[in-house]
Computed example of a mutant assay.
Amino acid sequence: MGKLTAEAIVERALEIGDAEGLDTVTIRRLAADLGVTPMALYWHFKNKDQLLIGMADHLILDFVVKGDDDRPWRDRLRELVEGLVRVLRTHSCARNVLEQVDKVAVPSFLAVWNEALGLARTAGFTMEECCLISNYLLQSAISIADAPVRRRRGRTPEEITEMARVKRLSLQSLPAEKYPNLVEMAGPMAEGMTVEFYDSFGVDLVVSGVEALAARR
């Protein structure tokens, strides 16, 4: 292969993490996959902690917002949340990567974090509120991206269809006079919806909440 780059290493690490889990990502495994010696990887990453930081930085770089953006704060904030949800959707190991690294050591995460704090400040929130908003946005993005996938991970399409059918019938069998809304909405509750709609509505809900609070200022 050609000259080994840090980018090639983290991309392969993410591929392994997505397919087999983050615990399987080791320097020795990466070296074998890339056809080099472990020492060749140590030139770029001295240990797995540094590798994880490199992986996190690579993930977040995809949606770092440009500093000269003059759009309204709410549009830019939505883009940040959408970008994080997209990364979490694209890479199943992304959540574990972000949870295991010291985010202060990840340059691209610092840029996004700083941007989120600045946008919240522009919206009129106090410094304490800005800190909470940035934390809630991260946790909300993780929840949005994780929920539907977690329920279906490892299931065949047939198993997913059968589980939805059983849940729908169970909800529809409830006393309609006592649980009218559950019975009426049994279909979408059991069968779910497209990932695109789920994510878009979730981001709308979160950002609209921030916008509604800002309007009270």
Rank of each mutant, 00 (worst) to 15 (best):
E15Y: 04
L132N: 05
W73I: 02
E7Y: 03
Q50K: 14
A215F: 00
R150M: 11
L61S: 10
L22Y: 01
R78G: 09
S170P: 03
R89H: 10
L30I: 07
D33T: 11
L98F: 07
L84G: 03
Q50P: 02
V36A: 12
V97S: 00
R78W: 00
V64T: 05
S108I: 10
M163K: 10
E7D: 14
E211Q: 13
R95V: 12
E162G: 09
S143E: 06
R121Y: 08
M193N: 14
A111V: 01
D102G: 04
L88V: 14
L59D: 08
T122R: 14
P188Y: 13
Y136K: 10
G17T: 00
V206D: 04
M39K: 03
M185R: 11
N96L: 03
A147F: 12
C130Y: 03
A32V: 04
D75L: 15
R217F: 08
Y136H: 13
E162S: 14
A13P: 04
F197D: 14
F125H: 08
A56T: 09
E115H: 03
H91F: 02
R152F: 01
F125W: 08
G67L: 06
L52W: 07
I142K: 09
R28F: 06
A214W: 01
E128K: 14
V195I: 13
L30Q: 03
V149Q: 12
D33E: 15
I53D: 03
T194K: 03
E211T: 06
T26P: 07
M189N: 10
A94N: 05
D69H: 14
T194P: 04
V10T: 15
G2A: 13
L169A: 15
E115Q: 11
A94H: 06
V183E: 12
V97T: 01
T122E: 15
G118A: 12
L205P: 01
F197W: 10
F109C: 09
A190W: 05
Q139K: 09
L169V: 12
C131N: 08
T90E: 15
G21D: 04
E191W: 13
T126L: 07
A186P: 02
G154F: 11
E82G: 00
P188L: 14
A120V: 06
T122G: 02
P72W: 08
M55Q: 01
N47V: 01
E79Y: 05
T122H: 11
F125M: 12
R216A: 02
G21Y: 00
G154T: 05
A31L: 04
L34D: 05
D204Q: 07
A176Y: 13
T5D: 02
C93Y: 06
V36G: 08
S134T: 15
A145F: 03
E15V: 10
A123T: 06
G187N: 14
S108F: 07
E129Y: 05
D70M: 10
R216S: 01
K178N: 06
E20F: 02
P157Y: 07
A13E: 12
S143G: 07
D204L: 06
V101Y: 02
R155I: 10
L52Y: 11
S92F: 09
E129F: 01
R151W: 08
G202F: 04
R217W: 01
M1K: 05
T5K: 11
A13Y: 05
M127C: 02
T161W: 13
Q172P: 00
F45T: 04
V104H: 13
T26R: 03
V183F: 06
Y136M: 11
L169T: 12
F125R: 12
